[in-house]
Structures are given as C-alpha cells and as structure tokens.
C-alpha cells in the first residue's frame, strides 16, 4: 500500500472503487454504445481525481466469467498525456480492459465447452467482494485513510443465482460502513443494487437519459461522503426487497425460511440445505404455514 502516512487525509478525501459492467451480452443490446459509455465513465474518473489531489480510484471490471482490477490510481506512475489524445489514466485503463475482455472471452469458451452457457449476468458478487477486500486492505493500512465508497455502474440484469453471495457482500459493506452507490443503466431496476444501496446508505440512481450519463455521474456520485451530508441527493422511490430462493435461485416474493439459519426456499423441504436442520415431519403443515413469509417492498 503506497499511501504514505505523510499524506494528510482530510474528511473529503475519497477512495472510489468503481465496478464497471463489461458484460458483452448486455453491451451488444444496450442503446448506449460501450465506447460512449467508456467516454462518460473515463471523464468522470478524471474529474474525481481532479476534485482532490489525493483522491484515489480503483476500477474493477465485472465480467461474465471473471472479475479483475483494471486500474488503481495509487499504482499509476506516469501522469501526463500519452498519444496526445488520451490521458494516461485512460490509455492505461483501456489497455487493461482490453486484456480483461480477452481473458474473459477465453474463460467463456472454456466454460461453454464443459457446460452449456447458462449465465448471462455479470459477476457482481465477485467484483463486490474484490472491492471490499481492497477496502479492507486500505482500512488496515493505518489510522488515516481515504473514505472508501463503492460505485457500481451496472447494466446487466440481476443473476438470482448470486443472491446469497451478493447479500453477504452487502452486509459486509454495511458492517464496515462502506456505502454502495449504484448507477443502473439497464432497462429495468435492479433489485440487488437497490437493496445494496438501501442497506449500506448509498445512492441508487437509474439515469433516464443515457447520453447524459456523465452529468448523472458527476452530479450524484462525484461528491465525497462528508459533503454528501449537506446535499439532497435523489432518494430512491422504492426498493424491491424480494429475495431469491436458495434451492432454485428464483426470485420469489413468498417462500419458506429456515428457522435456524434463515435460508430462503421456494418449496417446503424436509431438511435445510444450508445448515442441515431437519424440519419436523409431523408439524410440516403447521410449520409451512407459519414459515411462509412475504417480503414486501418498502420505502
């Protein structure tokens, strides 16, 4: 961790971990071309760095088959302009991104040989975990550190199969007081990101005009956490709190909950697949009736 203790971390210094959705299936259908999207995001990242000299940025690519760090501003050594066209940040990031996409494609090919392609959603849980790991490392670097936050720029829809992992990441972020902001550019709202932002105290934003993405990013997500307390950021109108069942990974609004470990199932099971608790056979009718709980959206 190169963040030297000599650096004076005031309360407006941020560590921004950006999770970029690089799901090729999403971008091939999106109304916003990936190149335009990158242009917006890169400008945004630049402006974050301009806001404070010691602001720090980490970019993690969220692919279909893998996730990886593609940029860390604390590691970049050559500031200045390369090619005369792109800032150093961009060319470095784009190069890494290209490498990442190639690797991800290879992984996809390997997987599709062994398994039929099932998933088209990005591995949000993976990138979230990576972001949290990085932040934990920053926390442990010393008593003074930039205020971390996570920004998910997500486009692909939720993968219910990641429900448990994502929820665990969310709770972990909540525990370490790391807000997860989300900018969802897909066609519908993402329940995962809504819950993530709701639980961690972040901002969930679904831009209506994708060609103004930069404006959204800089207006809503650029300010540091301290300044946020003085701003009136858009509030989410409602949160989809529905869960995915652990057995079939389906999104359900009513299901069965294990009374021991709180695992969620869409059907009654004799035994909890998570903790192994055996549900009484005799009282199964009663148990099923009482354990059937509805999750309702709340604001």
């Amino acid at each position: 961790m190169p963040s030297a203790p000599t650096k004076l971390y005031a309360d407006d210094v941020s560590l921004l971990v950006v999770l970029l959705d690089t799901n090729p299936f999403f971008w091939s259908t999106s109304s916003l071309p990936f190149s335009k999207f990158l242009s917006h995001v890169l400008s945004f990242l630049n402006s974050i760095l301009l806001l404070n000299q010691i602001n720090q940025i980490v970019v993690i690519a969220t692919g279909c088959n893998s996730c990886d760090y593609i940029y860390d501003s604390s590691l970049s050594t050559n500031p200045g302009i390369e090619n005369g066209k792109l800032p150093a940040l961009c060319s470095e990031l784009l190069k890494k991104l290209e490498d990442f996409v190639t690797r991800d494609e290879q992984l996809n090919k390997q997987q599709s040989q062994s398994l039929p392609p099932t998933t088209t959603s990005s591995l949000l849980s993976g990138s979230l975990s990576m972001a949290l790991c990085y932040i934990q490392r920053v926390f442990r670097s010393g008593p003074l550190h930039p205020h971390p936050r996570i920004l998910c720029v997500q486009g692909s829809s939720d993968g219910p199969e990641q429900y448990v992992a994502i929820m665990n990441s969310i709770f972990s972020a909540q525990r370490s007081m790391v807000p997860i902001d989300s900018c969802y550019i897909g066609s519908n709202n993402s329940a995962f990101l809504q819950q993530a932002s709701y639980i961690t105290g972040g901002v969930y934003q679904k831009p209506q005009q994708l060609d103004g993405l930069f404006q959204y990013l800089s207006t809503v997500f650029a300010t540091d956490l301290h300044s946020r307390t003085f701003l009136q950021l858009p509030k989410s109108v409602g949160v989809d709190f529905r869960a995915s069942c652990f057995c079939h990974k389906k999104t359900i609004d009513m299901g069965f909950i294990c009374s021991v470990c709180l695992s969620i199932f869409c059907k009654h099971h004799k035994k909890c697949s998570t903790c192994g608790s055996v549900f009484g056979q005799a009282q199964s009718d009663v148990a099923s009736a009482s354990n059937l709980k509805r999750k309702t959206p709340e604001t």
């Binding site: 090729p24 091939s28 190149s35 290209e98 996409v101 991800d104």
Partner: peptide, 10 residues
C-alpha cells in the same frame, strides 16, 4: 460476436 463488438468499442 458479443465479445468482438465489446473489443471493437474499446
């Protein structure tokens, strides 16, 4: 095709 277009964008 999808990956190709993504790389193309980059």
């Amino acid at each position: 095709e999808a990956y190709g277009s993504l790389r193309g964008s980059i």
